[in-house]
Design a binder for these strands. Structure first.
Lengths: 198, 198
DNA sequence: TAATTCCTTGTACGGTCGTTCTAGTAATAC
DNA sequence: GTATTACTAGAACGACCGTACAAGGAATTA
């Protein structure tokens, strides 16, 4: 009364390949047939492993979030203060090798604003991840209200600059603006902790 | 050898109605049939007036840009300096009555990052409009390099905050962050022009 | 009035979409 | 070996899409 066991690894393989395809081709061509063709399987195989297309999109977004969070978390990591954390995040996000991933990321924003539930939830979680990292980077002795407001501003600014970077590709101009912002952040942090412990 | 003259006003009516529909329903349902149904005409009528669907999208974006630019331009208008201009723009963009329009605006961003030409051009023009307004707001005696970098930062920050506002709807938190940013801007401007002429 | 052009409509075509059905093969448990 | 189940594939269905075609009424000029 038992048959063949489920091969979870097979599903994971297909999922990773699907995420790569989504990052490269965006949502425009994210249909069963093109994806199946690119992955070298039939549409039925994808349906078998992911169920509905909506469900496939959900797991793709989930995995994309894992990647993004891992990248941010690693960048913020053990930075001593907010200014350093912000600079680390910006350095990582402005890396052209990450652009494809962020392009998809902003494409999700576009959809979240018009097809609420599905994408909005994804974004809430991603931003929550960012917020958590950046609030923690400000140390436990910071006023929570100040920490929240500062983290919100940092995320918004980096996101806006990144959006500019992705649409215009003008690295010099955007980098200039980013430096201005980061300098402000570092200038603010200095008087508070003049000789900070290592 | 002449017949009925072209009724340009009719086309303008349909276009405005189409823009309203797009602002309200987004791109998801922006197909000939739903739009035609909402406007109370047949799809063939729309095809007759706009040609291809791509062409209709182009004129819709054009009109959306006109609206956005008019709003920004009016807000910046005769503000004395950059800080005041930025505050005016933020005040206007954070008005919930403008949200639907900005939602569509960001939806265009999402598409521009994956279906380049058509939408990217729209965004370049819109941002160029913003940049021009904000560079002018800094007065003619400002170093162009500084003016560009500052305008870039202001636009990016406002855009990022607006994106946060639209996705989370948390007005208090975002407003807090915006105030922090605007205060920095105003603080910077003060020492340069302590007693400025009215 | 007659001719011409605009405006509008209904219908239909080819294409892609998500999904379902049917069926065959491979791998495990009994 | 046999039964059960996972995996894969191909074909087909209904729905929606953008677009083209044929045709009729309305408005203007000659």
């Amino acid at each position: 009364m038992a048959g063949r066991p489920v091969n979870h690894q097979r599903r994971a393989e297909l999922l990773d390949a699907a995420v790569d395809y989504a990052v490269e081709h965006g949502f425009a061509e994210l249909s069963w047939r093109p994806v199946a063709c690119a992955l070298g399987v039939s549409t039925t195989t994808l349906v078998h492993h992911f169920g509905t297309k909506e469900q496939m999109l959900e797991v793709i977004l989930g995995r994309l979030r894992e990647r993004t969070f891992a990248a941010t978390s690693e960048a913020v990591g053990d930075q001593p203060d907010l200014a350093a954390a912000a600079r680390a995040v910006w350095t990582r996000t402005s890396d052209p090798r990450q652009w494809a991933e962020f392009r998809l990321f902003f494409a999700v924003y576009g959809r979240a604003l018009q097809a609420p539930r599905q994408f909005a939830e994804f974004l809430e979680r991603v931003v929550a991840d960012w917020m958590r990292s950046l609030v923690e980077a400000q140390g436990p002795d910071t006023d929570p209200a100040v920490a929240t407001r500062t983290a919100t501003l940092v995320i918004a600014t980096i996101r806006g600059l990144l959006l500019d970077l992705l649409t215009t590709g003008d690295r010099d101009r955007v980098q200039d603006a980013a430096e201005t912002f980061l300098a402000t952040l570092e200038h603010k942090a200095r008087p508070q902790r003049d000789a900070r412990p290592r």
